[in-house]
Design a protein around this nucleic acid. Structure first.
Lengths: 112, 112
DNA sequence: CCCTATCATAACGCCTCCGAAACGATTTTC
DNA sequence: GAAAATCGTTTCGGAGGCGTTATGATAGGG
């Protein structure tokens, strides 16, 4: 893959997301969402903050927003009730799956 | 490219952007930026709004923000002074180039 | 000319987000 | 059991975003 192709791919996918009236997630929110859905659980606020190199309130706010969109849910960790565990949802799984398809579709449209 | 690989690629790139303290652009802003830098000029507010399927104020605000980041500039169209032409900047070109490199780097780290 | 169409932006009220600091709740340490 | 450490959230003022609805500037047709 060459740089021009890579950028075209990103543009195609971004355009299809915007045109499709999908929620306008920021790069941070996307990083959180994909990490929750691709990396093995459990996912805590602190763990996500460390992995992304951001402060905990950033994660809390992103979870607020994505929770309102039903893309993730929060649950207390019953082993250590200070922790909050981020869990996947059916809607979130569908969203991520559909997003993966959009990337594939964008890749197919690339000029050789 | 399989769906899992595509999503992993997106995650890698999003993580590297977030970890690198790059400006946290939304999907809309990214779509605008890449369109300005990949598609041939001229680029007008109306044209971008039509291509993305959003209202014109959305474009105006995105240009405000990305202009403050020196990623694009605005100039009156002297042929038709109602129009505003969006132009590329040196900083923006560097940003886009570096972003393309980040995608390439993310692709290299993908599991087979 | 003037009247309408078109362009981009500004104004409005509301929501999200920022970093830093403070907060309650819970666990661990001594 | 009191004190310290840890966890996530809330608060603060300030900034940017949203959609909708005006507004000002320019262009063009009758």
């Amino acid at each position: 893959m060459r740089p021009t192709q890579a950028l075209r791919l990103w543009q195609q996918v971004a355009l299809s997301e915007v045109q499709g009236n999908m929620p306008d997630l920021s790069m941070r929110q996307m990083a959180i969402l994909l990490t929750v859905y691709l990396d093995p659980p459990p996912h805590t606020v602190r763990g996500l903050a460390g992995q992304l190199g951001v402060t905990k309130p950033v994660i809390t706010r992103a979870l607020d927003t994505m929770g309102a969109l039903n893309l993730v849910t929060r649950h207390r960790d019953e082993q250590d009730r200070r922790n909050v565990l981020v869990r996947r949802t059916v809607e979130g799984a569908l969203y991520v799956e559909r997003f993966g398809d959009a990337i594939i579709a964008g890749a197919r449209e690339l000029p050789i």
